[in-house]
Design a protein around this nucleic acid. Structure first.
Length: 509
RNA sequence: GAUCUCGUAGCUCAGUCGGUAGAGCACUUGACUUUUAAUCAAGGAGUCAUGGGUUCGAGUCCCAUCGAGAUCACCA
């Protein structure tokens, strides 16, 4: 233990000796919050020059002591609650035992430490320097802190000193990070508001919120390596889901017109500033619709999110150096048009060899297992994707890369799929769902052939899903959103770790 | 997985050419009854990430390991 930790344990023991419980069980009545008082306190100056305080004259608030300044027989502290900070003013003469013995020096000045949770009762007033404060008449210890918090200071110009900045410590000890770096709370408030806005939009559309299995016997619905686990009683291998798509479609088969799920997905792949092993997706599926309808819904939903998150209700958001307009309609570009526009290649007429030589020329990595579709996708990723700053629907993908997507109504070799790109990154993936069970079986068989060639991410055959389709699934549109990526977009964060409370870390020591 | 950078007091950081471990804040003691990065005086606090090596001597140089960040590869 460090010196400071030992001292705090000694303070704890002394409090108990004095009959003060540092961790009381009973609730503490809170009648006011810091931000409300500092923003709404009113007082008037009477004709004789005295001040008349108009509100907050009997308040009870609770929070953490974040700073203290002793001034002789008085003391100032900053109390932080969930709404913000407020200054407390304490005078020695206000703190006496029932017998009248002074306890200010011992109890408050010595045994109260930064980081302690306390409750205070008193009245609001303005100090000589004009700061709205609470004159404390009664103080209650609510929880003693045994470790010192980092002390982050700010001066009058807003300059920060000794900020708690080490990303490793911030992510490992989010409780400390969010206590002292309160600006990061805003990211998570926005994340919550974003999800709430989407949920209420989907509820208005009449969709049903559902939950589907995370432990799955067959990992389907996406191309990714799964986490494996084992169920003891069943004595069988299970996978943490990489997607919930096939289960949501079973519910469409079951006769629900529309279903949605916000849920964690798990992918056993690399970690970097845009990938965490577990991440959150929103997927929804709506019967009797197609991907054209889904584009309009996407535009409406994201516009609503943007307005909910911007301070002035604007549909625009600033992301890095770009101002992004989320009100629709968004630009629509086919995969082929996009590649032609940014590279000049006519991918429709080009053959595999021509694409391969272009990749060589542009130093785009390829391997021999890649077919024409995969090569186009590689070129898109290298040459096009980062140009798509304003929301852009990229539509109509080659059939080989979309085993769950319905064939295009008019363009052979393509499927009815779109991905939404914003700020050069994919944020949603949608399609007119494949509901032809015979076609779906053939697509799975193609995937099996890929797996046999060593593709670890190829989808497995899911006989029960095929059986469901054979019972009949109505024509359906479906979409998946990366909630973490969207949060990054709307909060201007470059790292996924900043939008997750507890990003995955290697174990300490 | 590869490459580069980083790891020193509770926090933020110095530490020169290899020669006794430093500062500010925090902490302790004292002064001050409207302070606010409070101020003033004095003081305490370190397994220099871990383990080896070179050297008379290593925070510093070399190797390995652990952890983090950035870039790249894969993926969303």
């Amino acid at each position: 233990m460090t010196e400071q930790e030992i001292l705090r344990r000694e303070s704890l023991a002394k409090l108990r000796e004095m009959g003060v419980e540092p961790y009381p069980a009973e609730m503490y009545e809170v009648t006011a919050h810091a931000a409300d008082i500092t923003q709404n306190y009113r007082e008037e100056v009477l004709e004789d020059g005295t001040k008349n305080r108009l509100n907050f004259q009997e308040v009870s608030l609770a929070g953490r002591v974040m700073a203290s300044r002793e001034a002789g027989k008085a003391m100032f502290m900053n109390l932080q609650d969930s709404s913000g900070r407020i200054q407390l003013y304490l005078r020695r003469d206000d703190f006496l035992t029932e017998e009248g013995a002074p306890i200010f020096d011992t109890l408050v000045k010595k045994l109260l430490d930064l980081g302690d949770y306390i409750g205070v009762k008193g009245f609001a007033f303005k100090t000589k320097t004009g700061e709205v404060s609470v004159h404390v008449q009664q103080l209650t210890f609510l929880s003693k802190a045994l470790r010192p918090l980092p002390v982050v200071k700010k001066d009058a110009d807003g300059n920060t000193f000794d900020a708690f900045t080490d990303p490793e410590q911030r992510y490992r000890m989010r409780y400390v990070d969010l206590t002292v770096n309160t600006q990061f709370r805003e990211i998570f408030l926005k994340r919550s508001r974003m999800i709430r806005t989407m949920r209420s939009y989907l509820d208005e559309l009449g969709l049903l919120e559902v939950e589907t299995p995370i432990l799955q016997p067959i990992h389907g619905g996406a191309a990714a390596r799964p986490f494996r686990t084992h169920h003891n009683t069943l004595d069988m291998e299970l996978y943490l889901r990489i997607a919930n798509e096939l289960y949501l479609k079973r519910l469409i088969v079951a006769g629900f017109d529309g279903v949605y799920e916000f849920g964690k997905m798990f992918r056993n792949e690399g970690m970097d500033r845009t990938h965490n092993p577990e991440f959150t997706a929103l997927e929804f599926y709506v019967a009797y619709k197609d991907y054209v309808w889904m584009m309009q819904v996407t535009e409406q939903m994201l516009e609503r999110v943007a307005r909910a998150l911007s301070p002035d209700g604007s549909s625009r958001a600033t992301v890095g150096e770009h101002e992004i307009e989320f009100a629709g309609p968004y630009r629509r570009l086919t995969m082929y048009e996009a590649v032609r526009e940014y590279t000049g290649i006519d991918v429709e007429s080009a053959d595999e060899a021509a694409l391969r030589s272009y990749c060589r020329q542009e130093q785009i990595e390829t391997d021999n297992s890649m077919g024409k579709a995969k090569l186009i996708d590689e070129i898109f990723g290298e040459k096009v994707e980062h140009h798509l700053i304003q929301p852009t629907f990229l539509i109509d993908y080659p059939v080989e890369m979309s085993p769950l997507t319905k064939k295009h109504r008019s363009s052979p070799g393509l499927v009815e799929r779109f991905e939404l790109f914003v700020n050069g990154k994919e944020v949603a993936n949608a399609y007119t769902e494949l509901n032809d069970p015979v076609d779906q079986r053939e697509r799975f068989e193609d995937q099996l052939r890929l797996a046999a060639r060593g593709d670890e991410e190829a989808m497995a055959m899911d006989e029960d899903f095929l059986r469901a389709l054979e019972y009949g699934m109505p024509p359906t549109a479906g979409i998946g959103f990366g909630i973490d990526r969207l949060t990054m977009l709307f909060t201007g964060q470059a790292s996924i770790q900043e939008v997750l409370f507890f990003p995955q870390m290697r174990p300490e020591k």
